[in-house]
Simulated assay, not measured.
Amino acid sequence: MVHIGKVNLGQRLAHPRQLWQSSHALVAIPLVLIVAIILADLRSPESVHLGPLLVVAPAITASFGGYRLTGLIGALAVGAQVLLAVLQGGVDTTNHISQIIALTILSVFAVIVCLVRDRRTAELAQVRSVSEAAQRALLRPLPDRLGPLHIASSYLAAEKEACIGGDLYAVARTGDRTRVIVGDVRGKGLAAIGEAATLLGSFQEAAHHHPTLPALAEALDRSVCRYLTGFPQSDEEAQEHFITALLLEIPDHSPVSQVVHCGHPPPFLIRHDQVTPVTSPCPAPPLGMSGLGPETYDTHTFSFHAGDTLLLYTDGVVEARDSSKAFYPLQERVAEWTQNSPRTLVQCVEKDLLAHADGALSDDAAILAIQRTPVPHTRLHATPLVHSADLDDPTG
């Protein structure tokens, strides 16, 4: 996480330098144009006046420079127009005076446009900064290690300038087990963040108070239902709002893990170069559809041994289409990367997915890889609490 922060900080610091360097190089264009127009006008017949073309210089500068640079180039253009007037019969002629006044007005107008644009750019940058902070606070980064688990995740938002949308994931450490949720709100982008925030907040609290996954699923369903009742009755889509989710419980000292499917795509279990979907014979409806009780949520058990990897994902991954409208073959592609670490696996899927969709996803996509490592033997009276040393120990 520290490495990612350093990279982002370096990119932010390098961005202004790159902009300055590019503007510094582009400023040669209006300067060359001013010199070229002066020389062309001096060599042209007296009946041909090329001085009005000097307005091109501040106009071009406004496309890449700030108001100060635009004002400077505009002043140079006006000065060049005055020079032409002096060399071609004096500044007091009506033609030259009108050209100087017109060029001055247009240069001032270009500076005003730059001022308005820069102000709006600054306001937009501030709004984006606040939006990114809020979204990152909602979807907090997952730890690289949690108990015996290695974790890696990725989020690809469908909407431009958004960090997250309607997809979600979170982990909770309760005693000697880890609980995981992956969900997908109906819809995409910023409009789905409210429902995602509700479910994430409920999970972070309820995961520590319910002994079983069915009870946890029922509590989350109640929270989503309460949230959805706040929609106006006139909203025709209110009854169509729901969240598909997958709940996972991985104990530290047992290879038997549990999963509850709530209308969500099954995860893939990677073991010995084999990729197998972890399906449930009786999947439950998505959260928020009917407030069903705990007896509706059936728990499916499966073995999750040391060295195994689970790949969890949302609909945006498997429903991504290429130019021929073919869906992304996730299971087939993952079979090529079974020996990779969780971080490398997620990066491979992310890169390949974007290439498959030509860089433009139609829906938000979340990817989560979890690998189990061996748990060291502990004394019987040892407490199951997680200490900071456990998180830092690379041996698990």
Rank of each mutant, 00 (worst) to 15 (best):
H15W: 12
R17K: 06
L19N: 10
I34Y: 03
L39W: 07
R43I: 03
R43W: 02
A57V: 12
I60Q: 07
F64H: 07
Y67T: 05
L69I: 00
A80H: 02
I97D: 06
T104L: 13
L115N: 04
L115Y: 08
R128K: 08
L142G: 07
P143T: 05
S153Y: 09
S154V: 11
E159C: 06
R173V: 12
R173Y: 07
G175V: 11
K188A: 04
I193Q: 11
G194H: 00
L216P: 02
R222Y: 02
L228Q: 10
T229W: 05
G230K: 14
Q233L: 10
T244V: 10
A245S: 14
L247I: 07
L248H: 03
L248C: 06
P251Y: 04
P251E: 07
S257K: 02
P265E: 14
Q274D: 11
S280Q: 08
A284V: 06
G288N: 04
Y297M: 08
S303G: 06
A326S: 14
T344Y: 03
Q347A: 13
E350I: 03
K351H: 14
K351F: 08
D352E: 10
L353R: 01
A355F: 08
A355K: 09
A365L: 04
V375W: 13
V386Y: 01
P394K: 12
